[in-house]
Amino acid sequence: MLENSVNQNMKVSFQNEDNKDLAGLYINFAKPGSLISDVSLTIKEGRRSVKSLQRSEKIMKILSTILLYVIIVFLALIVVFPFYWMIITSLKSNDEIRASTQTFFPTVVMWENYIEVFRTFDFTTYMVNTIVVAIFSTLGTLITTIFAAFAFARLNFAGKNSLFMVFLATMMIPGEMMVISNYITVASFGWVGLDADLMDAYLAMIVPFWVSVFYIYLLRENFRQIPNELYLASKVDGKSDWNFLWKVMVPLASPTLISITILKFMGTWNSYVWPNLVANKSEFRLISNGLRSSSFTDIEGNPLYGYQMAATVIVTVPLFLLFVFFRKYIMKGVGRAGIKG
């Protein structure tokens, strides 16, 4: 029976702990305290028992897990290395940065770099500009997004689906197609130019970014998940669409709205191209433009990397703080982009 059902190389035998074959022995199973405790069933495959095969498989599994962890951790270290290097370089003296032997920790911690950067780099102005632009472009985007997503998710009108397809199709168009003409448009509004003041520059940096098709798509998906019964119930209670939107849908979709807010804020913090075009005075600049256009060089024109890196740390830290506090919302918002394919 056994020989038929298992591999031909397999042999079933009774052995005691010294591997002595007990095949010929008479074992009295009925009698307590007999040989039974010394006997184990061993199944062999080739020369090795399955038990030892299982053991080696287990060892291989542990080894490969360790190897996997080593590789992943190594790659993670490579990924965070630029951040580490940014921080330690910002704390090094210029001589140490240029030395032929690189050090992985500053021999003398130069906090002076930061003091110097705060003195020369107009951080406060750039920061205020960035925050003002971020707040107002986020608010505008939220309002337009909520309205449009509500119309697409709840209301009925002729050509709804085809209009939404047109919206989605615009996501494929590279922004560069619009930048040229938008620049001319905002210039004709008087928002850019020699006599443009800070308010004009703000408007030029805020208004063109009040629409985001991607966020409309994201919020519409979320609105559609809100059960129909809620809408019917509120209708029966005599609530208007407007009330339903603000009292029921917006609170229920608040996680998505938080994601949108943070992503939009990060987008403004990182925006470089458009502000670089429209903010033609240094006091209008946003943080990225301020960073790139500030020169950290000594009299001979050699770059002062210590100062430069201190400035980049100052620019990066607020983003990291945002990430620490809102990690869940950021990763969810970004990740949602891929789920639907």
């Binding site: 630029p82 951040f83 940065i97 430069q308 620019v315 990430f323």
Partner: peptide
């Protein structure tokens, strides 16, 4: 979660 310009400058240093 980084600023493209800022980290570009870090890579330039590296």
């Amino acid at each position: 979660v980084t600023n493209t310009i800022a980290v570009g400058m870090v890579f330039a240093v590296i």
